[in-house]
């Protein structure tokens, strides 16, 4: 079935209140937000935020997330150390939760974002629906990578026993949080409609070349 998209119909959708406007409108008369046919500079912003997030993930995984100071000495653990600790101490369930939320999800999200961007650059229109499914998944799980930040905050807040044991926030926390926030902004700035526009581009291209042939 042939679908008519907003580009072909010469319309644009207000992303906040879902009102359909003609192209001449720049500000939605219903909710007052700016209206664009596609999110402006979507691809460039998504690229730059994704790259920044990848860079921040390196210190986030190498530096200690929190430092436990006790009579036995100082113990600084990275995210992976925490996962290994739980796997070794028979708490496999919680180890897997932390692994999923703090290591798997951030990498998965960035991989998907890069895959979607490449699909747009390579005009792979037949992958549009699959890409949209992936986009929905990363949009849904986006906030769950913040889990480790909250866990660190709670541990720091609770374990304050002067000389006996204290937990201090580690430098990886800030890098990790920046990576998470940037990935979330990148996902927000990515316009999934661009995945489907590739099909339109192809069709237009085909029509043009057909017309060219008939003239010759």
């Amino acid at each position: 079935m042939q679908w008519i998209t907003d580009i072909e119909a010469g319309k644009q959708l207000c992303l906040h209140c879902r009102k359909l406007h003609p192209l001449s409108v720049h500000r939605c008369d219903r909710c007052g937000s700016e209206v664009h046919q596609r999110i402006p500079h979507s691809i460039a912003i998504t690229w730059s935020l994704a790259i920044a997030a990848i860079i921040f993930l390196i210190p986030a995984n190498l530096l200690p997330m929190m430092v436990v100071k006790s009579i036995a000495g100082e113990d600084a653990g990275t995210i992976m150390d925490g996962v290994i600790y739980f796997l070794e101490h028979g708490e496999a369930g919680i180890g897997i939760v932390i692994f999923a939320a703090s290591i798997f999800v951030p990498f998965f999200k960035l991989t998907v974002l890069l895959y979607l961007l490449l699909n747009i650059h390579l005009n792979r229109s037949h992958r549009a629906k699959f890409g949209l499914k992936l986009y929905r998944i990363i949009h849904f799980i986006g906030k769950w990578s913040m889990l480790d930040i909250f866990v660190v905050a709670l541990m720091v807040g609770l374990v304050q026993f002067k000389n006996l044991a204290t937990i201090v926030t580690g430098p990886a926390a800030i890098a990790f949080m920046l990576a998470v926030v940037m990935t979330m902004f990148a996902t927000e700035h990515f316009d999934p409609r661009l995945l489907f526009d590739t099909e339109l581009k192809k069709r237009k291209h085909k029509n043009e070349s057909n017309e060219g042939n008939t003239h010759v």
């Binding site: 008519i4 998209t5 119909a9 359909l20 526009d197």
Partner: peptide
């Protein structure tokens, strides 16, 4: 009510 899909851009 005419609107467009916010995720794939089709007019519905």
């Amino acid at each position: 009510k005419e609107t467009a899909c916010k995720e794939c851009g089709v007019i519905v």
